[in-house]
C-alpha cells in the first residue's frame, strides 16, 4: 500500500469508532423512528405494521399540534432572549475580569454538578406559598398573604433560563475573550466613549458567540419536557410533552414517532438557518 493510500485511510480508521457509535446509537434508532412513524397504533396499544401517512397528515394539519408547536417555539425564543440579556453582561465581565477568572468560570460550571431536575425543583422551595420568597415578604410585611408565583408559563421560562444560562455565558465568554482588547483602546483613542467602543467594536465581534449561545439555548429549550412538568400549570406543555404522552400514556408509538420527527425537522431547520449565516465553527468553539 502506498504512503498516500495509507494517509487517505488513516482519518477514516481514526474516525471509525465514532462513526460506528453514531451509526448504531443515532442513525439506526432514527431510522426505526422514521419507519414507526408510517405504522399505525392498534386498538390495544400495539403496532400495526403497514404503510400509512395518517400520522404525518395529522401531525401537519391538526391545529392542536400546530398550536403547541408555536407555543414551544415562543417559549424557547423568550427563554433565549432572557439568556442573552442576562448572559452577555456576565460573560463580558468574566472575560474582562483581572486575576480571578478561573474562580468565576468554576462558579459558572458549578450548577452542572447538580442534577437538572433538582435545580428545577429548587424553585418550588423558593417561589412556593411557604417558600423562601413568600416567607421573607410576609415577615417584612410586604404582603399580607402568600403570593401564588408557581405553576405558570413565567415559572417555566424562569426554570429554563436557570438551566440554560451557563450555555449562553460560556459561548459569549469564548467569543469576547478572543477579541483583542487593543481594538477597544484604539477606538477610544480615536474619540469613542467606552460605550461607543463596546457598541461599535466589541458587540459586533462577539455576535458569533451570542448567536451560537442563542442557538444552543433555543434548541435545548424547545426540546425540554421536564421543566413544564415540574414548574408548569395544567395548560403549560411543550411539544416534547406531547411526544411523551403519545408514546408513554397513549401507547401510540407511531404518532409519537411522527411528532418527534416533526420537532426534529423544525429544530433542524433552525440549525440550518444558523449554519447558513454563521457556520458551525463558532458553536464547536463554544462547546469546547
Amino acid at each position: 500500500m502506498s504512503v498516500e493510500a495509507r494517509e487517505r485511510r488513516q482519518p477514516w480508521i481514526l474516525l471509525s469508532p465514532a462513526l460506528t457509535a453514531i451509526t448504531l446509537l443515532l442513525f439506526i434508532p432514527l431510522l426505526f423512528i422514521v419507519v414507526y412513524s408510517f405504522w399505525l397504533r392498534t386498538a390495544v396499544g400495539g403496532v400495526e405494521v403497514t404503510f400509512s401517512t395518517q400520522n404525518w397528515q395529522q401531525a401537519l394539519t391538526d391545529p392542536f399540534y400546530r398550536y403547541i408547536l408555536f407555543a414551544t417555539l415562543r417559549i424557547a425564543f423568550v427563554t433565549t432572549i432572557f439568556c442573552a440579556v442576562l448572559g452577555y453582561p456576565a460573560a463580558y465581565f468574566i472575560a474582562r475580569a483581572r486575576g480571578n477568572r478561573t474562580i468565576l468560570l468554576l462558579l459558572l460550571m458549578l450548577p452542572f454538578w447538580i442534577s437538572y431536575i433538582i435545580r428545577t425543583m429548587s424553585w418550588i422551595n423558593i417561589l412556593g406559598v411557604s417558600g423562601a420568597l413568600n416567607t421573607v415578604m410576609l415577615s417584612l410585611g410586604i404582603v399580607d398573604e402568600p403570593v401564588q408565583m408557581l405553576y405558570n408559563e413565567a415559572t417555566v421560562i424562569l426554570g429554563l433560563v436557570h438551566f440554560l444560562l451557563p450555555f449562553m455565558v460560556l459561548n459569549v465568554y469564548v467569543s469576547v475573550e478572543g477579541i483583542d482588547r487593543s481594538l477597544e483602546d484604539a477606538a477610544c483613542s480615536l474619540g469613542a466613549t467606552r460605550f461607543q467602543a463596546f457598541r461599535e467594536v466589541t458587540l459586533p465581534l462577539s455576535l458569533p458567540g451570542l448567536a451560537a449561545g442563542g442557538l444552543l439555548c433555543f434548541v435545548l429549550a424547545a426540546g425540554t419536557y421536564i421543566t413544564p412538568l415540574i414548574l408548569g400549570g395544567p395548560r403549560d406543555a411543550m411539544f416534547a410533552n406531547l411526544v411523551f404522552e403519545a408514546i408513554i400514556t397513549q401507547l401510540n408509538w407511531p404518532m409519537g414517532s411522527a411528532l418527534s420527527l416533526l420537532l426534529l425537522l423544525v429544530l433542524g431547520a433552525v440549525v440550518a438557518v444558523y449554519n447558513h449565516f454563521m457556520g458551525m465553527s463558532q458553536l464547536s468553539r463554544g462547546l469546547a
Binding site: F64, Y67, T249, N252
Partner: peptide
C-alpha cells in the same frame, strides 16, 4: 375503560392544553 382508552386519553391530552 380499556374500550374507550384510545379516544379518551387522546382527547384528554387536548382538553388539558386548552382545546
Amino acid at each position: 375503560w380499556n374500550g374507550n382508552e384510545q379516544e379518551w386519553s387522546e382527547t384528554f391530552s387536548r382538553v388539558q392544553r386548552g382545546f
